[in-house]
């Protein structure tokens, strides 16, 4: 086993264990963990079965197979980032709606308080 193979197995296995541990401890919501689990497993699989990686590398014309691993990892990172941007957009919209509701409700409460004083 080459050094780069050992290294990538350790890293991807470590990542997978970390993700599972975060889910177990409630630090990471399942909803956001799917892409992390899938990507760490695929990178792990490609690190273990080098034959598959080599064949894909030949197919794509990549001369140094382990560099294909970087490409795969990069693609997953991009997907995860996109996923985050979507999640942030949804949260931004919800925060806005909550803040607007609070503004209106607070005014209603104050108005009701003024009525009582009279």
């Amino acid at each position: 086993m080459s050094a780069v193979q050992t290294f990538s197995i350790i890293i991807s296995l470590g990542l997978f264990v970390l993700v599972i541990d975060f889910i177990r401890r409630g630090l990471l919501k399942e909803k956001y963990s799917v892409l992390w689990i899938v990507s760490s497993l695929i990178i792990l699989a490609l690190s273990i079965w080098q034959g598959v990686l080599d064949r894909i590398a030949v197919m794509l014309g990549v001369s140094y197979a382990p560099s294909l691993l970087f490409l795969v990892a990069l693609i997953f990172v991009l997907l995860i980032l996109l996923h985050f941007s979507v999640a942030i957009s949804v949260l931004t919209d919800r925060t806005k709606r909550l803040a607007q509701d609070i503004a209106i409700l607070r005014q209603e409460k104050e108005a009701a308080g003024d009525e009582e004083k009279k």
């Binding site: 806005k96 803040a99 607007q100 609070i102 503004a103 209106i104 607070r106 005014q107 108005a111």
Partner: peptide, 10 residues
């Protein structure tokens, strides 16, 4: 005026 206050700038 009736005033509606945002908690933060939006």
């Amino acid at each position: 005026a009736v005033v509606l206050n945002h908690t933060f700038n939006m």
